[in-house]
Write a protein that binds this DNA or RNA. Structure first.
Lengths: 121, 121
DNA sequence: GCTAGTATGCACCTTTTGGTAAGTACCCAG
DNA sequence: CTGGGTACTTACCAAAAGGTGCATACTAGC
């Protein structure tokens, strides 16, 4: 067990340590709207593999952001939802989400330029 | 030049496409406080290599978030600052930054647990 | 057998991101 | 010559993150 925990230089760094992961932002976005079963969540998120989605859900659960409820049924039935902590995070993300929505076209252009530069190199 | 641009599922996804990069959040954090010379910025950010810092600054500049001013002097003198667009982003990040600050201890514990799990596996 | 549904795991591989080490070019001081 | 400062570049490598393909186990239908 490490006795030294990572020192964050600022709150933003710390927050991004929680949501860093290709699919975590989308998971948070969808769960902010309400509880979802695994399959519903996966379809909502899009083209993510089981392996990676489960991996990132496990991390979010371990971090206390997401709650997993297994009903122990056959076929398996598992619900995912945001914890209270998770809801505070989702609230803090709302302005950034709005900013992204407001600037989607600019961002898409920027990303396209980045991808074009990479294709040439 | 690709004719298809990436489609973002939500604003959060789009926003994180701009700030994704190990050092970008810290760059934004420091530049939000005012213009910095390259060396000042690098010392502020911490243990980042020239190569990676320049790479991420170039991306932020290309995305219209950061402005680079080269004074053409010897020794070289280059200033980095946030653009107007960059300032809108920094504003949208403020709540998340505050959330991270408020929950630093929880986050540090979560990250430590993650690192402990990785050390055992 | 095959298909579909439910949720997840494992071994191995590919891609992406960040880092290392050395360098460029100019200035100054000892 | 050595060291320091200024701001970057290149080639190659290491580590991290995400993906592929196959599997688990139960149900149903063709």
């Amino acid at each position: 067990m490490p006795t030294q925990t990572r020192a964050f230089t600022c709150g933003l760094d710390a927050a991004l340590a929680v949501i860093g992961g290709k699919w975590k932002p989308l998971v948070l976005y969808h769960l902010a709207k309400g509880t979802l079963r695994y399959g519903e969540l996966r379809r909502a998120v899009g083209s993510v593999t089981h392996k990676v989605l489960i991996q990132q859900l496990k991390e979010l659960e371990a971090d206390g952001v997401v709650k997993r409820v297994d009903y122990g049924e056959i076929p398996p039935r598992v619900d995912y939802s945001l914890t209270k902590f998770g809801h505070t995070l989702a609230s803090a993300l709302a302005p950034l989400c709005q900013w992204g929505t407001d600037h989607t076209r600019e961002i898409a252009r920027a990303v396209a330029r980045r991808e074009a530069r990479e294709a040439v190199a």
